[in-house]
Amino acid sequence: MTTGFTSFPLAGIALSVAFAFSAQAETLRVAADPVPHAEILNFVKKSDPQLDLKIIELTSGINANELLAHGDVDANYFQHVPYLKEQEKALGQTFVVAATVHIEPLGIYSRKVKTLQAVPDGATVAVPNNVTNLSRSLYLLQKEGLIKLKAGYNDPSKNQATPKDIAENPKHLKILEVESPQIPRTLDDVQLAVINGNYALEAGLTPAKDALGLESAVNNPYANILVTTPKLANDPRIKQLAKDLESTQVAGFIQQNYNGSVIPVAGK
């Protein structure tokens, strides 16, 4: 009788454990920009084989936050917090930051001039057309002495800048707003281009070497993040991926492979 009685709870426990393992072992779908995000995720996939990752590389025109909101992916890894906040407003959604991983310094590039001092009067500057990276670009142009924003515009985390907020423009620069992924293609047509780090890398540029001006990583509010939904925030798979992305191993991978063009903010 004793043996027969104890077999039921043991069977129940076994089923519960099997169910929990099965749920945890389900594929985790993560949307990511090809460089460096998908490359970093592929490193995690190899170093943590127990985490079943499906990496969905983003192409131009696909909004990874819409994919996440619609349940087409479980997380995304491509953006920074200021951009995420704008997306939450635009989509009427609330998301959760699961991990803070790296910084891709925004850079100023040119195929027309070799120094910022040589920028001619009336030069055209291609900049990202989304609100946060446009503001970020203007702050970088101010940092490099090419423009001056209105009084009070000295902290990009507090004030979003637009071209209307340019107070001084001694070289009469023309600001040309372009879709971020397309900006590297403008390099033959404009004097300067302000390019996100990931798109610079995809275009074969090395930000730490090729940029005429580069954002500082110190107190930079634009660290790239792993984002998920409130429903999945405590999912063991998300927790494990977050732990992996903030690990010393991933920090080492970033440092060894991107030569200062991508800078880890965790695990150092």
Rank of each mutant, 00 (worst) to 15 (best):
M1S: 14
M1I: 12
T2W: 05
T2H: 12
G4C: 02
A11C: 11
E26Q: 15
A31P: 02
V35K: 01
I40W: 00
F43H: 00
D48W: 15
P49H: 07
Q50I: 12
L51F: 08
L51D: 11
D52Y: 04
L53N: 05
I56M: 05
L58C: 12
L68C: 03
H70P: 04
D74M: 03
V81I: 09
P82A: 04
K89S: 15
Q93P: 06
F95M: 06
V97G: 07
A99Y: 04
V101N: 00
H102R: 07
I103G: 08
V113C: 12
K114G: 11
Q117D: 11
D121A: 15
N130A: 11
N130S: 08
N133M: 08
G152D: 01
G152N: 01
P156E: 12
H172L: 15
K174C: 13
I195V: 01
A200T: 02
A200C: 10
D210K: 02
E215V: 10
A217H: 10
N219K: 09
T229Q: 00
P236C: 08
K239W: 05
Q240V: 11
L241W: 01
A242E: 00
D244F: 03
G252L: 09
Q255R: 07
Q255L: 10
P264G: 05
A266E: 04
